[in-house]
């Protein structure tokens, strides 16, 4: 710091504390709401201190649900979200590593063409081509399957680019030394390139897990069987599924459970996540 002004620092802390409060507030409210009895919400504005029904609410929502109010048990939704997020994260990383390896370490006819095919996917988020993509998945009989939930979202230009960028920074001599040491393409990939990419793989995993977990429109479209519902889309069914005012205490318990896993992933892998995020765009 250039100069040391006490008041400036105080002001900065004040701004940040206020900012953090604003950022945390919605989740705080959700946690509080999830600990109250249903009756609380009929008496007008919701309280700001925790209630005593937390345990009960969470048990209800995870194992029993409230099917009459459009709230199936969410234990299975959490599982579906987890499976979908894992399949997307692992799948994206696997196919992106392979294709980045091909693009960087081989010269072959059509290389630029394939690069562009992959690049195109960056430009076409699923939201802008909803109907035809849905039709393809329907024709392949992939509605209401894990494959249908994950495979169409697995192709990722982002991860391919990240790995391509990273591979380009691996010193040329690494490959040359491996060649002198008698490693072929597969050995080089498995023994050297993948171990060198561990940090990037982990960072990508965080980002892609969150991406997969937070999918909303896609599961909404292709699941009609509630045993394949994911939690993020399940919330919406709970909010709009009931005829009357939503059961706020259960909705908020669901919201907390839906938000918790990706938040935990971020907090535990913050360093990797930040690195991965800011480097993808370089």
């Amino acid at each position: 710091m250039v100069e040391n002004d006490r008041w400036g620092m105080l002001l900065a802390h004040l701004v940040l504390i206020l900012g953090v409060a604003v950022v945390v507030f919605p989740v705080y409210v959700a946690i509080i709401a999830s600990t109250h009895a249903p009756g609380t919400f009929l008496q007008g504005v919701m309280p700001l201190l925790p209630g005593s029904h937390g345990w009960e609410n969470y048990r209800t929502i995870i194992f029993e649900g409230r099917s009459n109010a459009g709230a199936p048990p969410i234990g299975s939704m959490l599982w579906n979200s987890f499976v979908m997020a894992m399949m997307i994260a692992v799948g994206k990383i696997a196919i992106s590593l392979l294709s980045a390896f091909a693009i960087v370490y081989f010269r072959f006819p059509g290389r630029i063409f394939f690069f562009w095919i992959i690049f195109v996917t960056l430009m076409l988020p699923v939201e802008v081509r909803i109907v035809p993509t849905y039709q393809v998945v329907a024709n392949l009989h992939m509605l209401n399957t894990y494959a249908g939930l994950s495979i169409p979202l697995i192709a990722s230009a982002t991860a391919t680019f990240l790995f391509r960028q990273f591979f380009m920074t691996v010193p040329e001599e690494m490959l040359e030394a491996a060649r002198v040491d008698g490693a072929g393409p597969w050995k080089f990939f498995k023994d050297i390139l993948v171990p060198l990419s561990v940090t990037n793989i982990a960072a990508m995993f965080v980002i892609m897990f969150i991406y997969g977990w937070n999918q909303y429109l896609w599961p909404l479209l292709i699941t009609t069987d509630d045993s394949y519902y994911t939690i993020v889309m399940g919330i919406q069914r709970m909010v709009t599924g009931a005829d009357s005012e939503p059961l706020w205490h259960l909705v908020m318990a669901t919201v907390v459970l839906a938000a918790l896993p990706p938040i935990l992933v971020i907090l535990f892998m913050q360093r990797l996540f930040v690195k991965g995020l800011t480097e993808t765009e370089k």
């Binding site: 909303y216 919330i235 919406q236 919201v255 839906a258 938000a259």
Partner: peptide
């Protein structure tokens, strides 16, 4: 940093 992890739909509901 953590609101990044919250799904847009969840943010909306909150």
């Amino acid at each position: 940093v953590w609101p990044y992890a919250v799904a847009p739909a969840v943010a909306g509901v909150l």
